[in-house]
């Protein structure tokens, strides 16, 4: 464990807290992509199957359960719970996620670490996580303006993987046999997708005023 990875996990937890607060207190899922939340639920439920046989640390096992529980709760609330379910707009949030899941599944089959069934599923989840934010970014693009809490949610989510990039650099230079090309590549792509958002987020927050984030 290093500070980058710890801060990355905290940033990821923060993103869950912000989103759960927004949809439970704000009683609205407007501006939130259910598609992205469904993809995250698939990512965590597939990647953390090894909950049942890998116990690298209590910290890891605990957070795996938390991430599966939170992502499932978010999908449940937006899909089934009133009044949130009425604030979800299927016409707007209509990114064809099958075009993300399909290629990631093929990639997981073809490019993975040890050719065991779990490694294929693990690689699939890594690739899918890299592109899971796309429906959310497309939804924000359509709306042009980003609600304040949603902008903090996306920023925390982007920061989490950005901090993981630093964690991988740190581990590469401090550990001998550390090599995780799959997650390095996918994590770089994932963070790259946020760069445009971060630019507009910074511009809108720079003046200290909480001017709304505007996406062109």
């Amino acid at each position: 464990m290093n500070i980058f990875r710890f801060l990355g996990d905290m940033s990821h937890i923060l993103s869950f807290v912000i989103l759960l607060l927004k949809i439970t207190q704000g009683k609205s899922a407007a501006g939130i992509s259910l598609r992205t939340q469904e993809l995250y639920m698939i990512v965590f439920c597939s990647r953390y199957l090894d909950l049942f046989w890998n116990f690298s640390s209590l910290y890891n096992s605990f957070l795996k359960v938390v991430f599966i529980a939170c992502s499932s709760a978010i999908v449940y609330i937006i899909r089934f719970k009133s009044p949130q379910k009425d604030t979800w707009n299927p016409e707007l949030d209509n990114f064809p996620i099958q075009y993300l899941i399909g290629p990631c599944a093929v990639a997981g089959l073809l490019i993975n670490q040890d050719w065991t069934p779990f490694e294929m599923i693990w690689a699939f989840s890594i690739y899918l996580e890299a592109v899971a934010i796309l429906p959310q970014l497309f939804l924000l693009q359509k709306q042009g303006e980003v609600e304040n809490l949603t902008s903090h949610y996306v920023a925390a989510l982007g920061a989490y993987r950005g901090l993981y990039l630093m964690n991988w650099v740190y581990r590469y230079f401090t550990e001998d046999d550390y090599l995780q090309r799959i997650v390095w590549f996918a994590g770089t792509v994932q963070t790259g997708l946020y760069i445009d958002f971060f630019y507009h987020y910074y511009q809108s927050k720079r003046g200290g005023l909480s001017r709304p984030v505007k996406l062109p």
Binding site: D9, H12, D50, W53, N60, F118, V183
Partner: peptide, 10 residues
């Protein structure tokens, strides 16, 4: 082993 032993990150 079912795999994933060296994935010690979340």
């Amino acid at each position: 082993a079912w795999g994933g032993e060296d994935h010690d990150e979340l």
